[in-house]
Amino acid sequence: SPPKPKTIVLPPNWKTARDPEGKIYYYHVITRQTQWDPPTWESPGDDAS
């Protein structure tokens, strides 16, 4: 059997959903933003550039 996916701790107000093909995506319940990649926690002042 395939390994279980890691449990991802989502930031507040993010949910997972499935598209009609069964792929998992993520959406923000307030902004209605959707994305394929797991959302990352906002870390103020932490600039990755």
Score class of each variant (00 low, 15 high):
Trp14Cys: 00
Asp19Met: 08
Glu21Ala: 09
Pro11Ser: 04
Glu42Gly: 11
Pro2Met: 12
Lys6His: 13
Thr16Trp: 11
Gln33Leu: 04
Lys23Phe: 02
Leu10Thr: 04
Ile30Ser: 05
Ala48Cys: 13
Gln33Lys: 05
Trp14Gly: 01
Asn13Asp: 11
Gly22Thr: 00
Pro12Arg: 12
Asp19Glu: 06
Asp19Cys: 02
Pro11Gln: 08
His28Asn: 12
Thr7Ala: 12
Tyr27Gly: 02
Thr31Asp: 02
Gly45Thr: 09
Val29Pro: 06
Pro38Asn: 02
Asp47Trp: 06
Thr16Met: 15
Thr40Ala: 14
Glu42Arg: 08
Ser43Arg: 10
Thr40Gly: 13
Tyr26Ser: 01
Pro12Val: 08
Thr40Arg: 11
Trp36Lys: 12
Arg32Thr: 00
Tyr27Met: 05
Glu21Asp: 09
Ser43Tyr: 07
Trp14Arg: 00
Asn13Val: 03
Pro20Asp: 09
Asp19Tyr: 03
Asp47Ala: 11
Pro3Gln: 15
Tyr25Thr: 02
Pro3Asp: 15
Lys4Phe: 04
Asp46Tyr: 04
Gly22Phe: 02
Pro3Trp: 13
Ser1Pro: 04
Ala48Met: 14
Gly45Ile: 14
Asp37Thr: 14
Trp41Arg: 13
Lys4Gly: 00
Thr16Gln: 14
Val29His: 08
Leu10Ile: 11
Pro20Met: 10
Thr16Ser: 15
Arg32Leu: 06
Glu42His: 14
Gly22Glu: 00
Asp37Glu: 13
Pro12Thr: 13
Lys23Thr: 09
Thr7Tyr: 08
Thr34Arg: 14
Thr40Cys: 14
Ala48Val: 08
Ala17Cys: 09
Leu10Glu: 00
Pro5Tyr: 10
Pro39Tyr: 02
Trp36Asp: 12
Thr40Asn: 13
Gln35Thr: 11
Ala17Asn: 13
Pro12Met: 12
Asn13Ala: 03
Lys4Ala: 01
Arg32His: 09
Pro5Lys: 14
Lys23Ser: 06
Gln33Ala: 09
Ala48Leu: 10
Pro38Val: 10
Ala17Ile: 08
His28Pro: 00
Trp41Cys: 13
Ile30Arg: 11
Trp14Met: 02
Ile24Trp: 09
Pro12Leu: 07
Asp47Tyr: 11
Ala48Pro: 13
Trp14Glu: 01
Ile8Tyr: 10
Glu42Trp: 08
Ala17Trp: 01
Lys4His: 07
Gln33Val: 07
Thr40Tyr: 09
Gln33Ile: 03
Pro11Val: 02
Ser49Cys: 04
Trp14Val: 01
Ala17Arg: 12
Asp19Trp: 00
Ser49Glu: 06
Thr34Pro: 06
Glu21Cys: 09
Tyr26Asn: 03
Gln35Glu: 03
Tyr25Met: 03
Gly45Pro: 15
Trp36Ala: 07
Gly45Val: 08
Pro5Asn: 15
Trp41Gly: 12
Tyr27His: 06
Arg18Gln: 04
Ala17Gln: 01
Lys23Gln: 06
Trp41Asp: 13
Lys4Arg: 03
Glu21Val: 06
Tyr26Cys: 01
Thr40Leu: 10
Pro11Ile: 01
Val29Asp: 10
Pro5Val: 15
Arg32Phe: 02
Thr16Ile: 09
Ile8Val: 15
Pro12Glu: 14
Thr31Asn: 01
Thr31Glu: 02
Gln35Gly: 02
Lys23Asn: 03
Trp36Gly: 09
Gly45Cys: 12
Pro39Ala: 00
Thr31Ser: 09
Ser1Glu: 03
Asn13Cys: 06
Lys23Ile: 04
Gly22Ser: 06
Tyr27Val: 08
Thr7Ile: 08
Tyr26Val: 03
Lys6Glu: 08
Pro12Cys: 01
Ser49Pro: 13
Asp19Leu: 04
Pro11Glu: 04
Pro3Arg: 15
Asn13Pro: 02
Pro3Gly: 14
Lys6Pro: 05
Lys6Thr: 09
Thr16Phe: 07
Trp36Leu: 10
Pro11Trp: 01
His28Tyr: 03
Ser1Arg: 08
Gly22Leu: 03
Gln33Asp: 08
Val9Thr: 14
Ile30Phe: 05
Pro11Cys: 02
Glu42Ile: 07
Thr40Pro: 12
Leu10Asn: 04
Pro3Ile: 14
Trp36Met: 05
Lys4Leu: 06
Arg18Asp: 01
Thr40Trp: 07
Ser43Gly: 09
Pro3Glu: 15
Asp19Asn: 12
Ala17His: 02
Trp36Gln: 09
Pro5Glu: 13
Glu42Met: 04
Leu10Pro: 03
Leu10Lys: 03
Gln35Val: 08
Pro3Val: 15
Thr31Leu: 02
Glu21Arg: 11
Asp47Lys: 08
Ser1Leu: 06
Val29Thr: 14
Asp46Leu: 11
Pro44Met: 12
Ala48Asp: 13
Lys15Ser: 05
Pro2Gly: 13
Ser49Thr: 12
Lys4Trp: 01
Thr16Glu: 11
Trp14Tyr: 03
Ala48Asn: 14
Pro11Arg: 06
Pro38Phe: 09
Asn13His: 11
Pro44His: 13
Ala48Phe: 10
Pro20Lys: 14
Asp47Thr: 11
Lys23Pro: 00
Ser1Cys: 12
Val9Trp: 07
Gln35Asn: 01
Pro38Tyr: 07
Val29Ser: 12
Thr16Pro: 05
Tyr26Leu: 01
